[in-house]
Design a binder for these strands. Structure first.
Lengths: 209, 209
DNA sequence: CCTAACATGAATAGGACATTCCGCTTCCGG
DNA sequence: CCGGAAGCGGAATGTCCTATTCATGTTAGG
């Protein structure tokens, strides 16, 4: 393969990722080609059809995410910290993709497998963080993944933007390591104030299993 | 206007709201008509074109939301509690609408005005809650509104589902009323654990302005 | 029972998108 | 520096989907 062709291929994948992320999975092939500074014909030289492109983009992104997650998971740090890093990393990527793929039928079996692997990996980390006592235990790993997905795919997400931080704070449980403060951090100070956030209070689960 | 005609009109608006919420703003007129148990022709009898329908649906929903917010705001309770109620109320509505409208150019000036009013109203409540000391002050009301919007429009949002609760907890600031615990709720218990959520720590802003 | 309102849904018109095709341009080994 | 294979551009094609209309049949309600 000629050198310039390889360069162009990379460019296409990068542009496609950006556009899927910023404008949803419906972007036209022509827009993608234009964003890459190429003609549609070139795009079709590299990918026989839309599905092939989407698949490549997805697999590349998912593989990158998996590697990152595995690397972090190998570190000797609390699982909570692993999750924080992974989440922040995701928030820095153009990733509406994940939603697109998860929610879109036309995905190759290979891609679905990758999605499954990444999900399982993250769910594991979450579950372990809960064991560890650094994460609230009143919601399931699946629910947490759903939340993370929403937050990370929201347009304009950034690794350290305030909204990502708010979510992480919400996830961490105010009682932190699991046995810090005994009750809600501060007593209600106004009549009618429901203290924390009403409805499902933090589960009183013991610190370790 | 004949009685059955009025009934059908209501049905159309309700169905349209549901479909916009569940399937995005791209749903076809035919789908809307079918969901209402009517023919397309009937739909066009009541609304000259798509924009008219969208506008009516939007205005009706936004007006309802504004009324609810105003009612809550009139109560003699902490602003935080007002926000919680409004947010939970929104989460219970089919409201992908709001995103649709905010992000879609084809909106009538009247609708945009309504959106502005509701936004201003909510921003006010948020700002007052921050003054009050019941809400974290390290992010702006606008950012908080963005977050609320994302959470409330996410598919499957419910008034008291765990994800809504997580977000509210994150918003509340662990130090609750603003002068409870002096530092992070609990000390780091593991090497490398960044305590809260790393990066932008809670601003040390004084309790009242 | 009569008729003005109303409802219907097949038919029309328009637009958007994926994909193809062929003449032109650019690499790169010798 | 040359030749030709590899690559590229982008107008043209074919398909699908949707908003909107209209001629015809149905119904409320006085």
């Amino acid at each position: 393969m000629r050198a310039d062709a390889r360069r162009n291929r990379e460019r296409i994948i990068a542009s496609a990722l950006d556009l899927f992320a910023s404008h949803g999975p419906g972007v036209s092939m022509e827009d993608i080609a234009q964003a890459a500074g190429l003609g549609v014909g070139t795009l079709y030289r590299h990918f026989p059809d839309r599905l092939a492109l989407v698949t490549d983009v997805a697999n590349s992104a998912l593989t990158g995410l998996r590697e990152h997650a595995l690397t972090q998971a190998a570190e000797d740090i609390p699982r909570w910290e692993v999750l924080v890093r992974v989440v922040r990393h995701c928030a820095g990527q153009p990733f509406a993709l994940i939603t697109s793929l998860t929610g879109t039928p036309p995905a190759t079996p290979g891609t679905q497998k990758l999605v499954g692997e990444v999900n399982a990996l993250l769910a594991d980390i979450v579950a372990q963080a809960q064991e560890e006592g650094t994460m609230r235990r009143d919601i399931t790993p699946e629910q947490i993944l759903g939340l993370v997905n929403v937050m990370v795919c929201r347009p304009g997400a950034q690794p350290d933007d305030p909204l990502t931080t708010v979510m992480l704070d919400g996830l961490r449980s105010c009682r932190a390591a699991g046995e810090g403060a005994p009750g809600p951090a501060a007593a209600a100070r106004h009549p009618g104030d429901s203290g924390s956030c009403a409805v499902p209070a933090l589960a009183p689960a013991d610190a370790d299993a």
